[in-house]
Design a protein around this nucleic acid. Structure first.
Length: 393
DNA sequence: GCCCCTTTGAAGACA
DNA sequence: TGTCTTCAAAGGGGC
């Protein structure tokens, strides 16, 4: 963590340090830690602590008041990993390239569409395949807990709104739910294949979620599930490769590019070349897994919006950045752990994927921006560089 | 309609 | 090995 960069007294980045610390004691503690470990060790220890403590009530009692939502998600992650190990150890299911993906633990698409009874309870046939069903059982409680267990910096006078993405309502999701949740209450519809199941009601709505990873190879989740022997083959859709373009998944982000037909705006490139290039840009791509801070932002952004009555993401992110640094290491550890599992799942889903694949998917930031930052009051680049310098030793 | 802003972390590129 | 760059999310604002 960059805030530890003062461990050995060097003042790299000190002049432009903006990070607000909660208290000196915490900072002092972190300094001591930094003197003993490097970044990886610290993060690793945070994770280990998190895992070790998760099973101990007494330990949990001693901890600062945790965010129950994060807690539950961490638990989900743990459960998911255990399920993953069971599968890989020759458990119930045959290994598959997507063995780690919880979706494929669903027995059939009939129940897949709705493994819950109308009263919200799981159907008996679905239960054995849904190790993460428990979150649904106490939705109101969890929602209340989360909303009341806000960090201390949240004012009681500020009304806390329910998370718009209602992530706790998606019981089929283990840790991947963290990034598979739709933030908007849109209709749960996932076009599986032409002529196939057009509408999949909740809980499969997450398949269309904001960060849901697209399925490699152009197969739909349902088809892959069927392929893995988890879904009755009598159920339509069949194992049919689905053009990726037919999967309007938010995680497969087409970059909207305005195309002037037949006109090349780039010197030295023919119109077809430019068209091809822009088609490539527009082509859906696999997104990077979210890091710890991104996961934190996703959880906390609605609270900040509600509390601070601001909408500008830049401002919100500044606030979130400060709050991130004010988190206890236990709280941060939960997010580091979630992010680690996020990367694990991502690597299992897309073994050949590289972050480099997405280079150029976003418009390159102008060099002048970095220079501006160096001159500006925040000096983002120098600050972050300084932090890395210390941590990497 | 596209890009910038703003944050942190991860990963790739490069010297 | 150290440093720099890019991308991941979000949505208002500027051009």
């Amino acid at each position: 963590m960059p805030q530890l960069n003062g461990a050995d007294g060097d003042d790299l980045g000190a002049s432009d340090e903006l990070i607000a610390f909660k208290d000196e004691g915490e900072q002092e503690e972190k300094r001591n830690v930094a003197a003993e470990r490097d970044l990886d060790d610290v993060k690793s220890s945070l994770v280990n602590e998190s895992e070790t403590n998760s099973g101990s009530d007494s330990e949990a009692d001693r901890r600062p008041k945790p965010n129950p939502d994060v807690e539950s998600r961490a638990r989900q992650s743990q459960l998911f990993e255990e399920a993953l190990r069971r599968q890989q150890d020759g458990g119930l299911f045959q290994p598959s390239p997507y063995v780690g993906y919880p979706f494929f633990m669903i027995p059939d698409l009939g129940n897949l569409c709705s493994p819950y009874l109308t009263n919200g309870a799981l159907t008996p046939s679905a239960r054995p395949y849904l190790p993460f069903q428990w979150p649904l059982l106490d939705v109101p409680g969890r929602a209340a807990m989360r909303d009341t267990a806000t960090p201390t910096h949240l004012s009681n006078s500020v009304p806390v709104v329910q998370h718009p993405h209602m992530s706790h309502l998606h019981p089929l999701l283990p840790y991947s739910s963290l990034t598979c949740m739709s933030r908007t209450p849109h209709a749960a519809c996932y076009p599986v294949s032409p002529g196939g199941m057009a509408q999949i009601p909740h809980p499969l709505g997450w398949l269309q979620g904001q960060h849901m990873y697209p399925i490699a190879g152009g197969f739909t989740p349902a088809a892959l599930a069927m392929n893995a022997g988890l879904v009755s083959s009598s159920f339509s859709p069949r194992l049919v490769p689905t053009p990726q373009s037919s999967i309007p998944h938010p995680a497969i982000v087409p970059t909207a590019v305005k195309q002037e037909p037949g006109v090349s705006s780039q010197p030295g490139k023919s119109a077809p070349d430019v068209k091809q290039e822009k088609d490539d840009e527009r082509r859906p791509h696999i997104k990077k897994p979210l890091n710890a801070f991104m996961l934190y932002m996703r959880d906390e952004r609605p609270k900040v919006v509600a509390q601070c009555k601001v909408k500008e993401s830049a401002t919100i992110n500044q606030i979130l950045g400060q709050r991130w640094h004010s988190l206890s290491k236990e709280e941060q550890a939960k997010y580091y752990e979630l992010a680690r599992k996020e990367r694990l799942l991502h690597s299992k889903l897309y073994p050949g994927w590289s972050a480099r694949d997405n280079y150029g998917k976003k418009k390159k930031r102008k060099r002048v921006k970095s220079e501006t930052q160096l001159e500006g009051k925040t000096s983002v680049v120098s600050l972050r560089t300084a932090g890395r310098f210390v941590w990497s030793r």
